[in-house]
């Protein structure tokens, strides 16, 4: 009973904040609504007993990805008034497409048994560890895909750095590698042998 109440509250919060993402005028508010959507979804995932992924969703998405979004939104100086001009013009098309997609999904979901009976699962025992189960699956059966996921993250890092790296022409800057590579004794320093002079002016041998 209390699970149903929690489900209804969190589902309403998820749907409402997802609607807020697409209709709100300011991009910063849209990003914050998306944060609220993720947090409410994490609550729903806790209800489905996927504790590890719920925490990962909050840590990775709310903590990293959405902060990156907010950072970019605040870095780019955009005109918020003109960014929302077409909303009313395209609203009927968007609503119609959304209703059609929702009706299709609803038809598929509610009209078929899909050959599997979905009984309500029993709650897990108190000492059941979702993280242990997930880790055992990832590091045994899904070991190779897990390494590919690491490679994908590496490619993401390299691509993001290469895309945003720029060398402006005509700006004086240090090339530290070149400075380190210089051999001062042979390249730019010349030692001249000359006789030293004493105070009285006579030359020392």
């Amino acid at each position: 009973m209390i699970q149903q109440i929690v489900f209804i509250i969190l589902a309403a919060l998820t749907i409402g904040s997802a609607l807020g993402v697409i209709v709100v005028r300011h991009t910063v508010y849209a990003a914050l609504f998306l944060v609220l959507t993720f947090v409410a979804s994490a609550g729903l995932w806790l209800l489905l007993e996927a504790e590890f992924l719920a925490l990962v969703l909050v840590l990775v998405y709310v903590g990293a990805v959405m902060v990156l979004f907010l950072f970019i939104v605040m870095m780019l100086d955009t005109d918020t008034q003109s960014l929302r001009q077409g909303l009313v013009r395209y609203a009927p098309l968007g609503v119609v497409v959304a209703l059609i997609v929702f009706a299709e999904i609803g038809y598929v979901v509610y009209s078929r048994e899909m050959g599997v009976s979905f009984g309500t699962p029993l709650p897990r025992a108190g000492d059941f560890s979702n993280t242990r189960e997930l880790g055992q699956a990832i590091y045994t059966a899904y070991g190779f895909p897990f390494e590919i996921a690491g490679v994908i993250l590496l490619v993401g890092i390299v691509a993001a750095i290469m895309l945003t790296l720029r060398r402006r022409q005509g700006v004086r800057h240090q090339n530290i590698a070149k400075q380190v590579r210089v051999n001062a004794k042979r390249g730019r320093l010349r030692i001249v042998h000359m006789p030293s002079e004493s105070r009285t002016g006579e030359k020392n041998p």
């Binding site: 697409i22 209709v23 077409g86 609203a91 497409v97 929702f102």
Partner: peptide
């Protein structure tokens, strides 16, 4: 999913 798709069309 429908809301996300509508957002792509609206915006």
């Amino acid at each position: 999913f429908a809301i996300g798709l509508a957002g792509i069309f609206l915006n």
